[in-house]
Amino acid sequence: MTQLPATPSKKKLGLVIDLDICVGCHACVTSCKGWNTENYGAPLSDMDAYGADPSGTFLNRIHSFEVQPAEGPSQTIHFPKSCLHCEDAPCVTVCPTGASYKRAEDGIVLVNEDACIGCGLCAWACPYGARELDQAAGVMKKCTLCVDRIYNQNLPEEDRLPACVRTCPAGARHFGDLGDPDSDVSRLVAEREGMDLMPELGTKPVNKYLPPKPKDRPAAEPLSPIADLQATGLAGWLDRLLEKL
């Protein structure tokens, strides 16, 4: 299991995250937490929940960055991050127990919690901080791409998508098959020049990020006055204006 599937799946399910419209609301964070506390594997615990150092397991987190362009004001970018379901997932191959695996049929990277010894090595191997060891259960937790929703016959068809995608108020999260060049998500990625995170590490993430569109473009040309107020006074201005009616 610890090997990657011999032939990479044609289907590559993943998320496409639009950095141009993510407002950083953390809705995807808590809906993910809620769903995954009730579903797949051990619940996501919260230690010292009401104390000085609360620390719980989350599968999705929102960072906020500022970027200073060469010209113009600083831009703020809210940046959601969960497992990118990498094609060359280093977290899978390092796992000594086979608990960490990439599904052959759709490429989802999962942890089989019954086999996980909680060594933490996969979290070390992941560049993106996508794995967190649950302090109560002692097993590795990560985004499951809501594998227990997306095929779930007990859910209405329209709800067979990840909890975070379903809840995102801004519509900044898209789910689909990135292996199919004609899928909506693949088209979006093509149109918007979707990008990989830390491509230099060779993980080949499936999830893509749509970059923010250009901001703070130069001001438009000013309007031209219909009359020279100083010369014509209010009356002249009014005449010129009402001529239009």
Partner: peptide, 29 residues
């Protein structure tokens, strides 16, 4: 810049972390 892909815009800095406390990743790594 490479971690966020935002290098194409400019220099990147963290403005607000995703949580105010610690987590497993921060403790471990």
């Amino acid at each position: 810049e490479t971690a966020t892909g935002l290098g194409r815009i400019g220099k990147v800095r963290l403005y607000e972390p995703p949580h105010t406390g610690t987590n497993y990743l921060m403790r471990e790594m």
